[in-house]
């Protein structure tokens, strides 16, 4: 019996690797407390997301095939970025269903791992919280996030073509996790609306309009903060709230940050997480009584 609850392969993706420490640092703490050990894939490459598959379908599959050939057998693969997740699963689907494609890339990269499941980071947390509900895992020193009103934002991280996720987008996965931490989940109109992803870099005004709708509706529904599972969405929303000069700016947390607080970390000990936010989240934490 290993000392860990789960050992998994980890693919950070380009966004989590170069920057966004505000979600990387708490993730290490959360995983340590949940007794999950992640091993980063050796020499991984870009997943081919947003541009690779957009201009040539072979790039998307080939990038996925190379990454899959690098991941060792016997461990599930954890991917924090929804876009990377979608590309990995779609490459896995194509390789599993098209023997010629599989043969072509096995000749190029060696054995390709098609047997292990690929999990999104919120699927992982959902699983652990289900175990906790069944009392097979117990959390110590938890600190309920009472009084924090959270709007859960999936963005396009919930959207997959029907062949990858036939049941449709997840509607309550993250909500259940957040409810379990003791925070209030508010309902608002746009939890699944795309934050405009890469178009934000080319046409900021499109992104500003979309994010004014999303963040504005959170404010009107009485939310204090947005929680997301995508580091890219987190950066995009905060950035566009600032550049659109919104009157009521809503800070955006990564799910890792809220879980770290729930699992007993003190907010005031971690100035290094909050300093990376473009919109200062400390007033929200103080208002909810989570500071100190």
């Amino acid at each position: 019996m290993s000392e860990y609850l789960m050992e998994a392969t980890y693919y950070p993706g380009c966004t989590m690797k170069t920057g966004v420490e505000e979600s990387n640092l708490p993730m290490d703490l959360v995983l340590e407390k949940l007794k999950i050990k992640l091993y980063e894939i050796e020499d991984w490459n870009c997943c081919g997301s947003s541009s690779g598959h957009a201009v040539n379908h072979e790039i998307g599959t080939a990038m996925g095939a190379r990454n899959l050939s690098k991941s060792p057998k016997g461990r599930p693969i954890i991917i924090p970025c929804p876009n990377c997740y979608r590309n990995w699963t779609s490459a896995q689907y194509h390789l599993a269903n098209e023997p010629e494609t599989l043969k072509k890339y096995e000749d190029q990269f060696g054995r390709i791992n098609l047997s292990d499941p690929i999990l999104n980071i919120y699927d992982l947390y959902h699983h652990v919280f289900n175990l906790a509900r069944l009392k097979s895992v117990e959390f110590e020193n938890t600190q309920p996030l009472k009084g924090l009103k959270v709007a859960v934002y999936y963005g396009c991280g919930a959207m997959y073509p029907k062949y990858l996720r036939p049941v449709g987008p997840p509607r309550d996965t993250v909500e259940r996790i957040v409810t379990e931490t003791g925070a209030d989940v508010i309902t608002y109109p746009y939890p699944h609306k795309c934050c405009s992803a890469f178009v934000s870099a080319v046409y900021p005004d499109i992104a500003e309009e979309l994010i004014t709708q999303i963040a504005g509706s959170v404010y009107e529904s009485g939310g204090d903060c947005i929680v997301t599972t995508c580091a890219m969405c987190q950066m995009n929303i905060e950035m566009r709230e600032v550049s659109a000069r919104m009157n009521n700016k809503i800070p955006v947390f990564h799910l890792n940050q809220l879980l770290a607080l729930y699992l007993g970390e003190k907010a005031s000990d971690h100035e290094d997480w909050w300093k990376y936010h473009l919109i200062d989240p400390i007033p929200v934490l103080k208002k909810a009584g989570l500071w100190g």
Partner: peptide
């Protein structure tokens, strides 16, 4: 198209 797959996820004909 931002590639968010919202269209693919809602399409009733998959």
């Amino acid at each position: 198209c931002a590639g968010c797959h919202a269209c693919a996820a809602v399409c009733p004909m998959a």
